[in-house]
Design a protein around this nucleic acid. Structure first.
Lengths: 155, 155
DNA sequence: CATGAAGTTGACAATCATTTTCGATAAGGG
DNA sequence: CCCTTATCGAAAATGATTGTCAACTTCATG
Protein backbone atom coordinates (compact mmCIF):
# COMPACT_ATOMS: atom_id res chain seq x y z
CA UNK A 1 0.00 0.00 0.00
CA UNK A 2 1.27 3.43 -0.83
CA UNK A 3 1.92 5.55 2.22
CA UNK A 4 -0.51 8.41 2.52
CA UNK A 5 0.44 12.04 2.64
CA UNK A 6 1.22 11.84 6.32
CA UNK A 7 4.09 9.50 5.66
CA UNK A 8 5.97 11.52 3.12
CA UNK A 9 9.46 12.69 3.75
CA UNK A 10 9.29 16.43 4.20
CA UNK A 11 13.01 16.93 3.88
CA UNK A 12 12.91 17.04 0.12
CA UNK A 13 10.94 20.25 0.26
CA UNK A 14 10.69 21.67 3.73
CA UNK A 15 14.25 21.08 4.83
CA UNK A 16 16.97 23.65 4.37
CA UNK A 17 18.48 21.31 1.82
CA UNK A 18 19.13 23.78 -0.97
CA UNK A 19 21.56 26.45 0.13
CA UNK A 20 20.87 28.48 -3.01
CA UNK A 21 19.66 32.07 -2.85
CA UNK A 22 16.83 32.22 -0.35
CA UNK A 23 13.41 32.98 -1.67
CA UNK A 24 12.28 33.39 -5.24
CA UNK A 25 12.04 37.09 -5.94
CA UNK A 26 14.31 39.94 -5.06
CA UNK A 27 12.51 40.54 -1.79
CA UNK A 28 12.19 38.05 1.01
CA UNK A 29 10.10 34.99 0.37
CA UNK A 30 10.29 32.91 3.49
CA UNK A 31 10.49 29.21 3.96
CA UNK A 32 7.44 28.17 5.89
CA UNK A 33 6.13 24.77 6.84
CA UNK A 34 2.78 25.51 5.26
CA UNK A 35 4.23 26.41 1.90
CA UNK A 36 6.42 23.34 1.98
CA UNK A 37 3.44 21.17 2.88
CA UNK A 38 1.42 22.43 -0.06
CA UNK A 39 4.28 21.80 -2.44
CA UNK A 40 4.84 18.37 -0.96
CA UNK A 41 1.18 17.42 -1.28
CA UNK A 42 1.31 18.57 -4.86
CA UNK A 43 4.39 16.46 -5.40
CA UNK A 44 2.71 13.36 -4.04
CA UNK A 45 -0.06 13.67 -6.58
CA UNK A 46 0.72 12.74 -10.14
CA UNK A 47 -2.28 14.56 -11.41
CA UNK A 48 -4.13 17.85 -11.13
CA UNK A 49 -5.71 18.76 -7.82
CA UNK A 50 -7.96 21.58 -6.70
CA UNK A 51 -7.00 23.85 -3.83
CA UNK A 52 -9.70 22.31 -1.70
CA UNK A 53 -8.59 18.77 -2.43
CA UNK A 54 -5.07 19.65 -1.42
CA UNK A 55 -6.37 21.27 1.71
CA UNK A 56 -8.34 18.16 2.59
CA UNK A 57 -5.31 15.96 2.06
CA UNK A 58 -3.16 18.17 4.22
CA UNK A 59 -5.67 18.31 7.03
CA UNK A 60 -6.22 14.57 6.84
CA UNK A 61 -2.46 14.16 7.11
CA UNK A 62 -2.52 16.20 10.27
CA UNK A 63 -0.96 19.30 8.82
CA UNK A 64 -2.15 22.54 10.31
CA UNK A 65 -2.85 24.63 7.22
CA UNK A 66 -5.70 26.99 6.48
CA UNK A 67 -7.57 26.92 3.20
CA UNK A 68 -6.66 30.54 2.64
CA UNK A 69 -3.01 29.69 2.86
CA UNK A 70 -3.37 26.84 0.42
CA UNK A 71 -4.90 29.22 -2.09
CA UNK A 72 -2.18 31.78 -1.49
CA UNK A 73 0.61 29.26 -1.79
CA UNK A 74 -0.78 27.94 -5.03
CA UNK A 75 -1.16 31.46 -6.36
CA UNK A 76 2.46 32.13 -5.50
CA UNK A 77 3.67 28.89 -7.03
CA UNK A 78 1.75 29.42 -10.23
CA UNK A 79 3.03 32.98 -10.49
CA UNK A 80 6.60 31.76 -10.42
CA UNK A 81 5.77 28.99 -12.84
CA UNK A 82 6.49 26.23 -10.37
CA UNK A 83 3.07 24.72 -10.83
CA UNK A 84 0.67 24.64 -13.73
CA UNK A 85 -2.96 25.63 -13.51
CA UNK A 86 -5.89 24.64 -15.62
CA UNK A 87 -9.58 25.19 -15.28
CA UNK A 88 -11.79 22.13 -15.28
CA UNK A 89 -15.26 22.03 -16.81
CA UNK A 90 -16.76 23.42 -13.65
CA UNK A 91 -14.43 26.37 -13.90
CA UNK A 92 -12.46 25.35 -10.84
CA UNK A 93 -8.71 25.82 -10.86
CA UNK A 94 -6.63 22.67 -10.69
CA UNK A 95 -2.94 22.66 -9.95
CA UNK A 96 -0.07 20.39 -10.76
CA UNK A 97 3.66 20.35 -10.26
CA UNK A 98 5.23 19.80 -13.67
CA UNK A 99 8.65 18.57 -14.66
CA UNK A 100 8.81 20.68 -17.73
CA UNK A 101 9.14 24.36 -17.03
CA UNK A 102 8.46 25.80 -20.47
CA UNK A 103 5.30 25.82 -22.56
CA UNK A 104 3.64 22.45 -22.78
CA UNK A 105 0.26 20.81 -22.72
CA UNK A 106 -1.38 18.02 -20.77
CA UNK A 107 -3.06 14.76 -21.29
CA UNK A 108 -5.39 14.46 -18.33
CA UNK A 109 -7.37 11.46 -17.13
CA UNK A 110 -10.99 12.47 -16.74
CA UNK A 111 -11.39 9.98 -13.94
CA UNK A 112 -8.33 10.12 -11.69
CA UNK A 113 -6.86 13.39 -12.98
CA UNK A 114 -3.50 11.74 -13.51
CA UNK A 115 -1.70 13.56 -16.25
CA UNK A 116 1.14 13.41 -18.70
CA UNK A 117 3.01 16.37 -20.05
CA UNK A 118 3.07 16.55 -23.80
CA UNK A 119 4.72 18.89 -26.21
CA UNK A 120 3.86 19.73 -29.74
CA UNK A 121 5.79 21.96 -32.02
CA UNK A 122 3.26 20.76 -34.53
CA UNK A 123 0.38 22.38 -32.74
CA UNK A 124 2.41 25.47 -31.95
CA UNK A 125 3.21 25.95 -35.60
CA UNK A 126 -0.33 25.29 -36.73
CA UNK A 127 -1.60 27.83 -34.24
CA UNK A 128 0.75 30.52 -35.45
CA UNK A 129 -0.10 29.92 -39.05
CA UNK A 130 -3.86 29.85 -38.53
CA UNK A 131 -3.72 33.06 -36.52
CA UNK A 132 -1.54 34.74 -39.11
CA UNK A 133 -3.91 33.84 -41.92
CA UNK A 134 -6.61 35.80 -40.15
CA UNK A 135 -4.42 38.75 -39.30
CA UNK A 136 -4.22 38.03 -35.60
CA UNK A 137 -1.06 38.96 -33.74
CA UNK A 138 0.38 38.41 -30.27
CA UNK A 139 -0.94 34.91 -30.36
CA UNK A 140 -1.20 32.57 -27.42
CA UNK A 141 -3.27 29.46 -26.98
CA UNK A 142 -4.57 26.96 -24.50
CA UNK A 143 -5.03 23.30 -25.19
CA UNK A 144 -5.74 20.37 -22.95
CA UNK A 145 -6.46 16.81 -23.89
CA UNK A 146 -8.74 14.66 -21.79
CA UNK A 147 -9.26 10.93 -21.83
CA UNK A 148 -9.16 7.82 -19.69
CA UNK A 149 -5.77 6.50 -18.61
CA UNK A 150 -4.96 2.81 -18.81
CA UNK A 151 -5.83 2.33 -15.15
CA UNK A 152 -9.21 4.02 -15.37
CA UNK A 153 -10.09 2.63 -18.77
CA UNK A 154 -12.78 -0.06 -18.70
CA UNK A 155 -11.77 -3.54 -19.87
CA UNK B 1 -22.81 54.32 -37.00
CA UNK B 2 -23.99 50.79 -36.44
CA UNK B 3 -27.46 50.57 -35.00
CA UNK B 4 -27.47 49.30 -31.46
CA UNK B 5 -29.31 46.27 -30.23
CA UNK B 6 -32.56 48.19 -30.00
CA UNK B 7 -32.65 48.65 -33.73
CA UNK B 8 -32.26 45.07 -34.83
CA UNK B 9 -34.98 43.38 -36.79
CA UNK B 10 -36.57 40.86 -34.45
CA UNK B 11 -38.43 39.00 -37.13
CA UNK B 12 -35.48 36.86 -38.06
CA UNK B 13 -35.58 35.18 -34.67
CA UNK B 14 -38.66 36.08 -32.75
CA UNK B 15 -41.17 35.91 -35.52
CA UNK B 16 -43.08 32.75 -36.44
CA UNK B 17 -41.02 32.64 -39.59
CA UNK B 18 -39.99 29.01 -39.53
CA UNK B 19 -43.03 26.79 -39.70
CA UNK B 20 -40.95 23.71 -38.95
CA UNK B 21 -41.62 21.45 -35.95
CA UNK B 22 -42.21 23.60 -32.93
CA UNK B 23 -39.60 23.60 -30.22
CA UNK B 24 -36.33 21.71 -30.09
CA UNK B 25 -36.97 18.52 -28.14
CA UNK B 26 -39.81 16.07 -28.15
CA UNK B 27 -41.60 17.93 -25.38
CA UNK B 28 -42.79 21.50 -25.53
CA UNK B 29 -40.16 24.18 -25.82
CA UNK B 30 -41.99 27.40 -26.19
CA UNK B 31 -41.20 30.37 -28.32
CA UNK B 32 -40.80 33.30 -25.99
CA UNK B 33 -39.76 36.86 -26.63
CA UNK B 34 -37.00 36.57 -24.02
CA UNK B 35 -35.41 33.55 -25.62
CA UNK B 36 -35.58 35.20 -29.01
CA UNK B 37 -34.05 38.36 -27.61
CA UNK B 38 -31.08 36.50 -26.18
CA UNK B 39 -30.47 34.71 -29.43
CA UNK B 40 -30.80 37.97 -31.33
CA UNK B 41 -28.34 39.77 -29.07
CA UNK B 42 -25.97 36.91 -29.54
CA UNK B 43 -26.41 37.19 -33.26
CA UNK B 44 -25.60 40.87 -33.27
CA UNK B 45 -22.26 40.21 -31.64
CA UNK B 46 -19.50 38.77 -33.77
CA UNK B 47 -17.57 37.68 -30.73
CA UNK B 48 -17.95 35.91 -27.42
CA UNK B 49 -20.08 37.54 -24.73
CA UNK B 50 -20.72 36.74 -21.11
CA UNK B 51 -24.23 36.24 -19.82
CA UNK B 52 -24.02 39.50 -17.94
CA UNK B 53 -22.85 41.45 -20.95
CA UNK B 54 -25.74 40.11 -22.96
CA UNK B 55 -28.10 41.00 -20.16
CA UNK B 56 -26.75 44.55 -20.07
CA UNK B 57 -27.15 44.92 -23.81
CA UNK B 58 -30.71 43.67 -23.69
CA UNK B 59 -31.68 45.94 -20.85
CA UNK B 60 -30.01 48.90 -22.50
CA UNK B 61 -32.01 48.10 -25.61
CA UNK B 62 -35.18 48.28 -23.57
CA UNK B 63 -35.86 44.56 -23.51
CA UNK B 64 -37.53 43.27 -20.39
CA UNK B 65 -35.39 40.24 -19.54
CA UNK B 66 -34.15 38.98 -16.23
CA UNK B 67 -30.56 37.90 -15.74
CA UNK B 68 -31.81 34.50 -14.64
CA UNK B 69 -33.55 34.04 -17.93
CA UNK B 70 -30.48 35.02 -19.88
CA UNK B 71 -28.53 32.34 -18.04
CA UNK B 72 -31.24 29.79 -18.62
CA UNK B 73 -31.57 30.59 -22.28
CA UNK B 74 -27.84 30.33 -22.81
CA UNK B 75 -27.79 27.04 -20.96
CA UNK B 76 -30.53 25.77 -23.21
CA UNK B 77 -28.86 27.01 -26.35
CA UNK B 78 -25.53 25.51 -25.45
CA UNK B 79 -27.16 22.22 -24.58
CA UNK B 80 -28.64 21.98 -28.04
CA UNK B 81 -25.38 23.06 -29.59
CA UNK B 82 -26.80 26.28 -30.97
CA UNK B 83 -24.18 28.35 -29.24
CA UNK B 84 -20.61 27.65 -28.22
CA UNK B 85 -19.26 28.23 -24.75
CA UNK B 86 -15.76 28.85 -23.57
CA UNK B 87 -14.31 29.86 -20.25
CA UNK B 88 -12.17 32.97 -20.18
CA UNK B 89 -9.14 33.38 -17.94
CA UNK B 90 -11.34 34.52 -15.10
CA UNK B 91 -13.32 31.34 -15.40
CA UNK B 92 -16.42 33.11 -16.65
CA UNK B 93 -18.49 31.49 -19.36
CA UNK B 94 -18.62 33.28 -22.68
CA UNK B 95 -21.11 32.45 -25.40
CA UNK B 96 -21.17 32.79 -29.12
CA UNK B 97 -23.46 31.84 -31.95
CA UNK B 98 -21.39 29.88 -34.45
CA UNK B 99 -21.96 29.13 -38.09
CA UNK B 100 -20.30 25.79 -37.93
CA UNK B 101 -22.26 23.22 -35.98
CA UNK B 102 -19.68 20.48 -35.64
CA UNK B 103 -16.43 20.40 -33.70
CA UNK B 104 -14.27 23.43 -34.29
CA UNK B 105 -12.02 25.87 -32.50
CA UNK B 106 -11.80 29.62 -32.16
CA UNK B 107 -9.42 32.42 -32.77
CA UNK B 108 -10.49 35.04 -30.26
CA UNK B 109 -9.42 38.66 -30.00
CA UNK B 110 -8.22 39.31 -26.49
CA UNK B 111 -9.40 42.88 -26.75
CA UNK B 112 -12.78 42.97 -28.47
CA UNK B 113 -13.61 39.27 -28.20
CA UNK B 114 -14.36 39.11 -31.91
CA UNK B 115 -13.72 35.62 -33.09
CA UNK B 116 -13.19 33.45 -36.09
CA UNK B 117 -14.07 29.80 -36.34
CA UNK B 118 -11.20 27.60 -37.33
CA UNK B 119 -10.90 23.93 -38.02
CA UNK B 120 -7.96 21.66 -37.85
CA UNK B 121 -7.89 18.05 -38.79
CA UNK B 122 -4.20 18.45 -38.16
CA UNK B 123 -4.69 19.15 -34.49
CA UNK B 124 -7.39 16.53 -34.21
CA UNK B 125 -5.08 13.89 -35.58
CA UNK B 126 -2.15 15.00 -33.48
CA UNK B 127 -4.34 14.83 -30.38
CA UNK B 128 -5.49 11.31 -31.12
CA UNK B 129 -2.00 10.10 -31.76
CA UNK B 130 -0.46 11.68 -28.68
CA UNK B 131 -3.21 10.27 -26.49
CA UNK B 132 -2.84 6.84 -28.02
CA UNK B 133 0.88 6.80 -27.40
CA UNK B 134 0.19 7.19 -23.70
CA UNK B 135 -2.56 4.63 -23.56
CA UNK B 136 -5.37 7.15 -23.12
CA UNK B 137 -8.76 6.37 -24.61
CA UNK B 138 -12.06 8.19 -25.09
CA UNK B 139 -10.13 11.29 -25.98
CA UNK B 140 -11.55 14.77 -26.22
CA UNK B 141 -9.80 18.10 -26.16
CA UNK B 142 -10.22 21.80 -25.81
CA UNK B 143 -8.22 24.40 -27.63
CA UNK B 144 -8.64 28.10 -28.04
CA UNK B 145 -6.33 30.56 -29.69
CA UNK B 146 -6.10 34.13 -28.45
CA UNK B 147 -4.56 37.15 -30.08
CA UNK B 148 -5.26 40.65 -31.28
CA UNK B 149 -7.38 41.10 -34.38
CA UNK B 150 -6.40 43.56 -37.08
CA UNK B 151 -8.69 46.20 -35.65
CA UNK B 152 -7.35 45.95 -32.13
CA UNK B 153 -3.76 45.46 -33.12
CA UNK B 154 -1.51 48.47 -32.43
CA UNK B 155 0.25 50.13 -35.38
C1' DC C 1 21.05 33.54 21.99
C1' DA C 2 18.05 37.86 21.99
C1' DT C 3 15.63 41.25 18.94
C1' DG C 4 12.91 43.39 15.67
C1' DA C 5 11.27 44.23 10.93
C1' DA C 6 8.85 42.19 7.48
C1' DG C 7 6.79 38.26 5.42
C1' DT C 8 2.97 34.80 6.72
C1' DT C 9 -0.88 32.70 8.65
C1' DG C 10 -5.79 31.72 9.28
C1' DA C 11 -10.57 32.49 10.93
C1' DC C 12 -13.99 35.03 9.04
C1' DA C 13 -16.16 38.33 6.05
C1' DA C 14 -16.74 39.80 1.40
C1' DT C 15 -17.02 39.00 -3.78
C1' DC C 16 -19.09 37.46 -7.65
C1' DA C 17 -20.67 34.40 -11.23
C1' DT C 18 -24.06 31.06 -11.55
C1' DT C 19 -28.00 28.25 -9.70
C1' DT C 20 -32.15 27.37 -7.15
C1' DT C 21 -36.61 28.61 -5.43
C1' DC C 22 -41.25 29.42 -6.12
C1' DG C 23 -45.29 32.27 -6.95
C1' DA C 24 -46.80 34.89 -11.01
C1' DT C 25 -47.22 34.94 -16.05
C1' DA C 26 -47.60 33.75 -20.81
C1' DA C 27 -47.76 30.25 -24.77
C1' DG C 28 -50.49 27.57 -27.66
C1' DG C 29 -53.11 23.23 -28.35
C1' DG C 30 -57.84 21.80 -27.80
C1' DC D 1 -61.82 31.03 -24.70
C1' DC D 2 -59.49 27.82 -21.31
C1' DC D 3 -56.55 25.13 -19.22
C1' DT D 4 -52.23 22.84 -18.75
C1' DT D 5 -47.63 23.60 -18.42
C1' DA D 6 -43.40 25.77 -19.80
C1' DT D 7 -41.30 29.95 -18.60
C1' DC D 8 -40.24 34.22 -16.19
C1' DG D 9 -37.81 36.81 -12.68
C1' DA D 10 -36.85 38.78 -8.06
C1' DA D 11 -34.67 37.32 -4.34
C1' DA D 12 -32.16 33.94 -1.73
C1' DA D 13 -28.73 30.31 -1.98
C1' DT D 14 -24.39 28.28 -3.47
C1' DG D 15 -19.62 27.74 -3.87
C1' DA D 16 -15.08 28.89 -5.29
C1' DT D 17 -11.84 32.37 -4.57
C1' DT D 18 -10.11 36.76 -2.49
C1' DG D 19 -9.72 40.50 1.08
C1' DT D 20 -9.06 41.76 6.02
C1' DC D 21 -6.33 42.15 9.92
C1' DA D 22 -4.51 40.83 14.37
C1' DA D 23 -1.46 37.26 15.95
C1' DC D 24 2.58 34.71 14.65
C1' DT D 25 6.98 33.03 12.29
C1' DT D 26 11.23 33.53 9.98
C1' DC D 27 15.77 34.96 9.81
C1' DA D 28 19.39 38.56 9.32
C1' DT D 29 21.77 40.93 12.89
C1' DG D 30 23.68 42.44 17.26
Amino acid sequence: MTPDAAGRDPSSFAGPAEPGPRGRDGGGARRTTQRAAVLAALHDADGFRTAQELHDVLRAAGERVGLTTVYRSLQLLSDTGEVDVLLNDAGEAMYRRCERRGHHHHLVCRSCKKSVEIESGEVERWTERAAGEHGFSAVTHTMEVFGLCTTCSPA
